[in-house]
């Protein structure tokens, strides 16, 4: 396999393909982390509060690892996060969906669905032709496996009685179609290039097939049914990437960029001047 060692050796086409591959990875992690942090100081017990905060911070760390890959192509953090248009984000809407207050089943089911998908996605990148992608896989995989175990354990705990199982079932019914959209490409026109360059070594439909298999087996084993979704027509109307119309995402975006906007940081780059009176 040809090897793309780093940002300096890339053609314009290769850069575009790498961006199309990495932005969804980074944005999924970032936006999901934002949702996890909403559980801080609101989780059912102090122990679960601490555990979910760990997961949130891991995901933020992964987001940073992926953003660094695109940063090396010539972006800075404000451009990647705080100044990017909300409709230029590539996260799947699963990550941004709001949840009802107290819906802990949502937190653990979403985590299980996402982390299972993430595990498969990472496997398909371990042999990536672009070295900065392949290099990151091992560290992220270890943490995602822990997250998946944590989520699976919680799902089983909630399934001890019929009421608990029902909340899990409701969350699965609601989230499953959105989770299927994790396997939609960020930029469909780049899919062929991504695969022919060997940036990813497996196709998205194949990963989705494995994901359906794994998640169905798990939920069957605990008597939770998985909705049958016909593809692609069964996907939600705003299933995936590149949809600026989800109000929840816009409100989240508004909140996380608020301080940045209010401080007018765009005009006072703190890295270049410590004392800037504007």
């Amino acid at each position: 396999m040809s090897s793309l060692s780093g940002p300096d050796v890339l053609s314009a086409d290769e850069r575009a393909a790498i961006e199309a591959l990495v932005f969804p990875l980074a944005d999924d992690e970032f936006v999901l982390a934002e949702r996890y942090t909403e559980w801080q100081v609101r989780a059912p017990t102090l122990e679960s509060d601490l555990a979910l905060a760990n997961v949130a911070q891991d995901e933020l760390g992964h987001a940073r690892l992926w953003y660094d890959v695109v940063a090396d192509l010539g972006y800075d953090e404000p451009e990647l996060l705080f100044e990017r248009d909300p409709d230029a984000f590539y996260h799947a809407s699963l990550c941004a969906l709001p949840f009802e207050t107290g819906d802990w089943a949502d937190a653990v089911v979403r985590s299980y669905l996402y982390d299972t998908a993430e595990g498969l996605r990472l496997d398909s990148l371990a042999g990536s032709a672009y070295a900065p992608i392949a290099n990151r896989i091992e560290r992220i995989t270890t943490e995602e496996e822990y997250h998946r175990e944590h989520a699976a354990t919680w799902i089983k705990r909630l399934c001890v009685d019929s009421e608990g199982r029902q909340t899990v079932q409701n969350a699965v019914d609601r989230l499953y179609p959105y989770a299927l959209a994790l396997f939609e490409p960020g930029e469909p026109t780049q899919t062929d290039v991504i695969e022919s360059l060997g940036l990813r070594t497996e196709s998205l439909p194949s990963l989705r097939g494995q994901w359906i298999q794994t998640t169905s087996t798990f939920f069957d084993s605990i008597d939770v049914s998985v909705p049958v979704v016909e593809l692609p027509q069964g996907l939600p109307e705003d299933p995936g990437r590149h949809d600026p119309h989800v109000a929840a995402w816009l409100s989240l975006y508004d909140d996380f960029t608020r301080t940045y906007r209010e401080l007018d940081r765009a005009h006072t780059p703190t890295i270049t001047s410590e004392h800037n009176d504007g």
Binding site: L50, R64, R258, L263
Partner: peptide, 20 residues
């Protein structure tokens, strides 16, 4: 959520977690 950089966000999340 309102942190103006990724580093600050991580630090705030970790701080809140420490307090818990």
């Amino acid at each position: 959520r309102q942190s103006p950089s990724l580093d600050r966000k991580l630090a705030f999340s970790a701080k809140v977690q420490d307090e818990i």
